[in-house]
Design a protein around this nucleic acid. Sequence first.
DNA 1: GGAAAAATAGAACGATCGTTCGTGTTTGTC
DNA 2: GACAAACACGAACGATCGTTCTATTTTTCC
Lengths: 199, 199
Amino acid sequence: MSKGEDTKRTILGKGLSMASTLGLDLVSIGSLAKATNMSKSGLFAHFQSKENLQVEILRHAGDVFAERIVVPALKTQAGIPRIMALVANWIQWTSRLKGGCIFVSASSDFTDRPGKVRDFLLNQQKEWLECLRRIAKSAVTAGDFREDIDCDQFAFDLYSLLLGFHLYHNLLESEETKRRQEKALEQLLNTYRPTSSNS
Amino acid sequence: MSKGEDTKRTILGKGLSMASTLGLDLVSIGSLAKATNMSKSGLFAHFQSKENLQVEILRHAGDVFAERIVVPALKTQAGIPRIMALVANWIQWTSRLKGGCIFVSASSDFTDRPGKVRDFLLNQQKEWLECLRRIAKSAVTAGDFREDIDCDQFAFDLYSLLLGFHLYHNLLESEETKRRQEKALEQLLNTYRPTSSNS
DNA sequence: GGAAAAATAGAACGATCGTTCGTGTTTGTC
DNA sequence: GACAAACACGAACGATCGTTCTATTTTTCC
């Protein structure tokens, strides 16, 4: 790996960490330069604009997310076990760095700010929902879910649940959050499970 | 009403509008002054600090929220009708101004920024959850919910659903969002309804 | 209507923002 | 080890940030 790519990776790593705790647009060129012991202009040269920096931080976040959350889950047994693994990994992801999930906060911040950042983020979110949809589909195939369910609806339901956990965990810091999430997940799965007396 | 209170109200109205679309901390003193045809210092004098301005915008948002979402819902029949009214009002609230719900975005932004703003926001969110809890409780009393349910769990479930709708609606702008939310609400209510063959 | 009080404006502050430019320093290649 | 390319730095840019003054206008009250 060339020197340039190496420092760029370092910058993005620190940038992701800062963006997770402070939010994506509180990561200024100056503060990020200071955090990586670089000059503003030296750091800036890697990205050409702040907008590009933000996009690349998101891209890097996406890589880490895929590697740590999605891929491991896909290696587990299809069906409910895979869903449980995905949820567990996601919760670990959002709990790891203070400030929670960068995608959630960025989605909230950039909804009404057109541009590269918003476009990139939107694609990432669509990929994430597609991922959830596929996992639901595999649960159907595995026989853990009924065949007549709506996989996109499940994606909505599950993501909503995670968003609820996210807010509770980060803002309210209630001790019961984990239990609430588990209960909600159980209820959710029950509405998709094959019923013993199913029509 | 004194002149001061009058202009202050105007400022907070415009501030709420801007904060809803741009996010709470992109509302700068300068831009808000320009939007209200005031001088920076003239506007600043009403709040003594930006932190206070942010808190007061949140307080004003809370007042509007109570008046438009909560109070009308509480006037409807207790039970599921009241829940449906609350959800409908909330969705109208988050759809009205571009950028969605200021409380959701602010919660996301201020989770890891200690200070007056975070403290105030946290109290507001607790009040909101308490509101949801009470509405669940009244649904139990009205006989629309089983007696053995956990009202706090219902608050978690319902708020999660709204957060899901919020993200879908604002970022993805999918046409199916409304339908997804309705389906999810129906599923949710079913898990709390008295069952015909209940133990 | 005149005096006290409140409200607003204007200029300036140090700080930081994103960005540009010119100049060095380090790196990889022959 | 020389040469070109890549990389990093420091200084400076105009702009805007939150905030503090002083001065002037406007409102309020007797």
